[in-house]
Design a protein around this nucleic acid. Structure first.
Lengths: 356, 356
DNA sequence: CTGAAAGCGCTAACAG
DNA sequence: CTGTTAGCGCTTTCAG
């Protein structure tokens, strides 16, 4: 029983016509008579004929399939990217094969091979944290399979890419902290060997400078997880001169910091204001809700796949395109400080932290 | 340049030998001389030959590819299922194509067609919320492609399946609420036309009965989202006799309830204790942290794909297997009530809600 | 209007 | 030890 799938030959035999006629009838070729078409289509439906996409790929040398390499699906940002990609792919009649690298270089290489030997027409890639050697991607690009990098890009290869304006996002976040009166803002940063970490730290520095806030490099603290943030914040709060603002490189880190602050009996945002990065779905579920930077994952996915589709449809080579995606600060309660009395001119009805 | 991928023929031509010899040399066939093997392998590496998986699939009539249909990747539970599936698939040399149905019946049908015509060897499916007609799955099973349903299963077709013991999980949750002294426990329930909703509600009823807690069907409230829970809880708290325990059908709903309770100035767990379901990553990030039911998504994924692989490897038919996966209650702060004085005999060092 | 034949890349009998 | 041939399912010239 297994594998007993109906082929064009079966239909041909049943109808005592040739496979080529069946093929043509199925795709409504003008040469074929109306009756034959009807007969073929009816039988096809009856036998539940499904065209064999594999045979088609082999014949056409394109598979209408795109490969997607993603570090970790669990992250809200990445799942939104996937959704953006899928929605467009779906409409364009493309199939998407998703592979997780799990932030492992070895697995990324393996994924890439699987996809390439599966003859995907193109690739969408966000590189793993571990990856420092990009030869595997170079080889693929050399064979003519287009790659679009998104979010975590590879600068050593000239390809289309979609990047988040991390520096600007970080700048906005820190500038906002300054604007609500924070004087000593620390940054919980990601590893500085990744662009993301570097760019966000850069935005932090710029905003500090612009607001004439004194800072040292020690105020950029390597800490990018919930647990780390919790411990780190507990320690910071014990020091003589704790910060009054924290800009965390991602939401989970921000939430870890918030927990520690609340457990120390301090008030957010009035004692310490907190900003995250990503606008994951938990940002509205914390108390206070979290001010954070929206990265537009869904749009990034859409833009990335559109770049790829353009490249596939193009009949000539053209220069690599880089699209920088704007970020937006989403202000919530974790930075809505009660205005100091002498500044409080507007918003009479606001009772502290009740609005969202 | 595009599609200029190296084939076995290219290697054969270059070396002036036949394609079959190349094929054999590449797979280390004993018939081939050592020199030929070396020459072939060297050239293959040099030209970066990648076997064409598509051609192989066509020849072998299996693709070493599995199809996965998942309602929505964003959910923590489903991403853990994916990880479980991928880890096993990876080791077994199988590729996984993931499709999201986005809880839409239409999309589920389309996904299924894509996967089937892409000649996947087997399918792992969790049905969409919308789906009430299962003919599309029946057809696929009829053609001999095995399906394993997980979590949201289809009872109309006899296939392998992996289900969560929702009723028991719910029972444990509510029984626990009763054991910490809750007397009026309400249940925020999912739609009762889904098994999940029904089973969890059933577990609730059973636990109420077992603990001799009076309840009416009005205490099972249709409410399964963060926003709904927030509003619903606000309303409940205004009533004369509010609940002292809430069992929510999922974590987000529980968190919505918690927010409303905290905003009303009440204490969790002492005024109202809350339990969720899923043990998503935010359960530890709320304040208080959330007691919830662990569903073991990763294990479910592993078990599901193992059932599928067994089925694929089997040389004979065998009866459909159903695996029921145990759930575990994870007790955190949202139910750690301060013991009443006359009961407080043990745990001297505990200061209320500090442990996790 | 329809059929025969070749070929996409690879493998596996079957011959040498 | 190596080559020839046929065929997986489908399309597409080229011939009728």
């Amino acid at each position: 029983m297994r594998g007993s799938r109906v082929t064009i030959k079966d239909i041909a035999r049943e109808l005592s016509i040739s496979p080529s006629t069946v093929s043509r009838a199925l795709k409504d070729h003008p040469d074929i008579s109306a009756q034959t078409k009807i007969a073929v289509n009816e039988l096809a439906r009856k036998l539940q004929y499904e065209p064999n996409a594999i045979a088609l790929s082999l014949k056409n040398s394109f598979s209408k399939t795109l490969g997607l390499i993603i570090p970790e699906i669990v992250h809200y940002f990445f799942s939104s990217v996937i959704s953006g990609i899928e929605d467009v792919a779906y409409d364009a009649g493309f199939n998407v094969i998703i592979c997780q690298s799990n932030e492992s270089y070895e697995r990324e290489v393996k994924n890439l091979h699987t996809l390439v030997s599966g003859r995907v027409d193109g690739l969408l890639v966000s590189v793993s944290k571990e990856t420092t050697n990009f030869d595997h991607f170079k080889h693929v690009v050399d064979t003519g399979i287009p790659i679009v990098f998104y979010d975590r890009v590879c600068n050593e290869i000239l390809t289309d890419r979609v990047i988040v304006d991390d520096a600007d996002g970080a700048f906005k976040a820190v500038d906002h902290l300054a604007s609500v009166g924070c004087k000593k803002i620390v940054h919980y940063a990601a590893s500085q060997h990744l662009m993301i970490g570097r760019n966000r730290a850069m935005g932090y520095r710029e905003a500090m400078r612009k607001n004439n806030l004194p800072f040292t490099e020690e105020m950029i603290i390597r800490c990018d997880s919930f647990d780390c943030a919790k411990k780190m914040t507990e320690n910071l709060l014990k020091e003589k001169n704790p910060p009054d603002g924290i800009f965390a490189v991602n939401d989970l880190t921000a939430i870890g910091a918030m927990l520690a602050i609340k457990e120390a009996g301090l008030d957010i945002p009035n004692d310490i204001a907190v900003v995250g990065f990503s606008n994951g779905n938990y940002a509205t579920m914390t108390q206070p809700s979290l001010t954070t930077v929206e990265q537009h994952g869904y749009d990034i996915g859409k833009i990335a796949i559109n770049l790829l589709l353009d490249r596939l449809r193009a009949d000539h080579e053209y220069e690599a395109i880089t699209r920088m995606i704007r970020t937006d600060l989403v202000v919530r309660e974790s930075t809505k400080r009660q205005l100091k009395i002498d500044q409080a001119t507007s918003s009479p009805g606001l009772s502290g932290m009740k609005q969202v």
